[in-house]
C-alpha cells in the first residue's frame, strides 16, 4: 500500500524539511538519516527556506501512470536561498514562461491521486514567486 509508505514521508514532503550539518552547514533534501557527505558531521532536521531560483528544468511529455493526467508538466532543478538543491514540480507556470534563473517559492499542491483508493498525495511544488 503506497499510501502507507508515503504517509511516512509526509512531513518533509509537505514542509520542505531537510538535513543540515552541525559541522559544515551543508544541507540536504530529502533529509538524510546518515552523516554529512562533505565532513561526516552530525545532521539535524531543519525547515529549509521556501524561496529559490531555477537552475534547470524539463517539460515532461511522457509521464508515469500517476502523472498521466498532468502532462505536459514542468520539473525544476532548484537552488534554495541557503544553497540546498532539489528537484520539484513547478506549478502555475506554462512551459513558454519558464526561464532558468527565475525566482520561485514553495507551495503545497496535490501530487497525484491513487485511482482505485482515491487517496490524494499532497506535497511541495514551486511556483513563480508572488509579491
Amino acid at each position: 500500500m503506497p499510501e502507507i509508505t508515503e504517509w511516512r514521508d509526509r512531513i518533509w514532503r509537505y514542509r520542505l524539511i531537510g538535513s543540515r550539518c552541525g559541522g559544515c552547514g551543508s544541507t540536504y533534501y530529502p533529509p538524510r538519516n546518515s552523516r554529512c557527505l562533505k565532513c561526516g558531521g552530525d545532521l539535524e532536521e531543519v525547515e529549509l527556506p521556501r524561496r529559490g531560483k531555477l537552475l534547470s528544468y524539463t517539460v515532461v511529455y511522457q509521464a508515469p501512470t500517476l502523472y498521466k493526467y498532468s502532462t505536459p508538466y514542468i520539473v525544476g532543478y532548484i537552488e534554495l536561498l541557503d544553497g540546498t538543491r532539489l528537484f520539484a514540480m513547478l506549478t502555475d507556470v506554462e512551459p513558454d514562461e519558464v526561464r532558468v534563473g527565475m525566482e520561485l517559492e514553495a507551495t503545497l499542491r496535490k501530487l497525484y491521486t491513487y485511482g482505485e483508493s482515491g487517496h490524494i498525495v499532497y506535497g511541495v511544488k514551486f511556483r513563480p514567486a508572488v509579491g
Binding site: 498532468s70 506549478t91 502555475d92 507551495t107 503545497l108 499542491r109 496535490k110 501530487l111 499532497y122
Partner: peptide, 13 residues
C-alpha cells in the same frame, strides 16, 4: 483551480 489545487491546498496558502 489548477489541476493540482483543491479546497485544502487553497486553505493551506
Amino acid at each position: 483551480p489548477s489541476y493540482d489545487e483543491d479546497s485544502l491546498t487553497i486553505a493551506y496558502e
